[in-house]
């Protein structure tokens, strides 16, 4: 099966997540080629065909021209499957391409069973097995679901792409969220607060435990959206990605967006009242307790260690 893998290019670099797309292609025993709107003079190392369109012409974000360039690559490659990362680039472009191809698009694939895709449902509480009914299938892959292949070597066969296009989008550039005083990336211990903390005062319980463990405290998205904790402490896809020695998830159910930001932690402890919370899938230890009772006791006992 011919597979076209869509790499992402941001702030002057090809993002590494195309190695996960390669792992997926290998699992399906497909023949992969690569597509990227990037630097035509610096194609990514890859032993195969790479379709490149010039990023200075088509910009890092312009779904209208990128879609048309992709259509051209799909046509030339006779691709039966187009593979994106399930990222802000992938989930934005994939449906547009699928529409143009009359193809099924399957979002956030976590696994493949007998040629069917498995995707999460209901905040990752459930899984849905989906079968494509179209000749071409467009998929986006959940970040981290397919372990990245090693860095590629080899000189690609570069195929430049060009189209006539003046799309309706004007990409003005990036804005970086102003970093606060905290670099969670450097902390050996992170204690994070999730929706389960219930009210803003309980952030203090989490912060106090973090302090006792000589670490920092973080938070999941809902807690940041509620403005109980500053954005620079957010862990997850839209916040920081961390890998401390100890990560304690307090009242965090474990939405995939959060897991993606912390699952490389060396040791994960979850404190939750719900035994079935998805965080349990990656936690080394799951403490079933009400964090309002448990955290103060734990903090007190740790002080005496």
């Amino acid at each position: 099966m011919n597979m076209l893998l869509v790499a992402e290019y941001r702030q002057g670099k090809v993002l590494g997540n195309f190695h996960e797309l390669l792992a997926f292609a290998a699992q399906l025993q497909g023949q992969p080629s690569l597509f990227v709107v990037g630097d035509v003079n610096a194609p990514p190392a890859f032993p195969g065909r790479v379709y490149i369109a010039d990023v200075t012409t088509y910009k890092e974000y312009d779904p209208s021209s990128h879609k048309k360039l992709l259509l051209e690559a799909v046509r030339r490659e006779q691709a039966e499957m187009v593979v994106f990362a399930h990222s802000s680039y992938g989930w934005d472009l994939a449906p547009r391409l699928a529409m143009a191809l009359g193809a099924a698009q399957i979002s956030e694939v976590t696994a493949v069973i007998d040629g069917d895709c498995v995707v999460p449902a209901c905040n990752s509480k459930l899984r849905r097995r989906v079968k494509s009914l179209s000749a071409i299938t467009v998929v986006t892959l959940q970040s981290g679901a397919f372990s990245a292949q090693a860095a590629q070597t080899g000189t690609p066969a570069v195929i430049p792409l060009e189209i006539d296009e003046a799309g309706p989008y004007t990409f003005k550039g990036y804005e970086i969220a102003t970093a606060g005083g905290v670099d969670l990336g450097k902390a050996a211990v992170i204690v994070s607060a999730g929706r389960g903390i219930g009210k803003p005062e309980n952030v203090a319980l989490v912060a106090e435990l973090a302090k006792t463990l000589k670490g920092e405290y973080g938070a999941s998205r809902p807690v940041v959206d509620a403005q109980w904790v500053e954005h620079h402490r957010q862990v997850g896809t839209t916040g920081q990605t961390v890998a401390p020695k100890l990560y304690m998830a307090c009242g965090i159910s474990g939405a995939i967006q959060h897991l993606a930001g912390m699952k490389k932690s060396e040791f994960v402890v979850a404190v939750n009242t719900d035994k079935d919370a998805p965080i349990g899938e990656i936690a080394d230890v799951m403490v079933i307790a009400d964090l309002k009772q448990f955290l103060p006791v734990l903090t007190e006992k740790l002080r005496m260690v």
């Binding site: 849905r128 989906v130 998805p278």
Partner: peptide, 20 residues
């Protein structure tokens, strides 16, 4: 263009310790 074959609960990965 696509069909849901089935909906299911993910299997719990073993390994994690449950403290109660």
């Amino acid at each position: 263009l696509q069909d849901t074959v089935r909906l299911f609960f993910p299997e719990k990965k073993g390994g994690g310790m449950l403290l109660e």
